[in-house]
């Protein structure tokens, strides 16, 4: 049941889930430790793609297409988010070079 077959290779589905979890954690740690807003955006994309891998694995494991549908939706959403995110960053870079999100500190009560 939890076997996933690619060609002639049989792999346990949990390997895919563990890989996805690792990618998600790497992305989350990246957001917490890196300061460049562009890199943070890349880390968010990494997290979203880790989830896509999880969804597709579950879909395959459960013999149920809803997970693939979800992954397609999430890819589309991630693309929209990346476009808007880059747009906002380009807009702010035009005024000043922001290499560190800690420089964004005008708003502090």
């Amino acid at each position: 049941m939890s076997d996933i077959t690619i060609g002639n290779e049989h792999l346990d589905a949990s390997w895919f889930l563990i890989l996805a979890a690792l990618l998600f954690i790497i992305g989350a740690i990246g957001i917490l430790v890196r300061r460049n807003p562009l890199v943070i955006l890349v880390c968010i994309e990494l997290m979203l793609n880790a989830v896509n891998l999880t969804l597709v694995t579950f879909s395959r494991q459960l013999q149920n297409s809803e997970g693939q549908l979800f992954a397609l939706m999430s890819i589309t959403v991630a693309a929209a988010e990346a476009v808007v995110g880059l747009g906002i960053l380009v807009d702010i870079f035009k005024d000043r070079e922001v290499e560190d999100v800690d420089e964004l500190s005008e708003l502090r009560g």
Partner: peptide, 16 residues
């Protein structure tokens, strides 16, 4: 602009 960047990065993190 700063609000937009902060909201974007935090919001994206939460969405994930």
């Amino acid at each position: 602009q700063e609000a937009a960047v902060k909201y974007l990065l935090m919001g994206g993190f939460a969405s994930a």
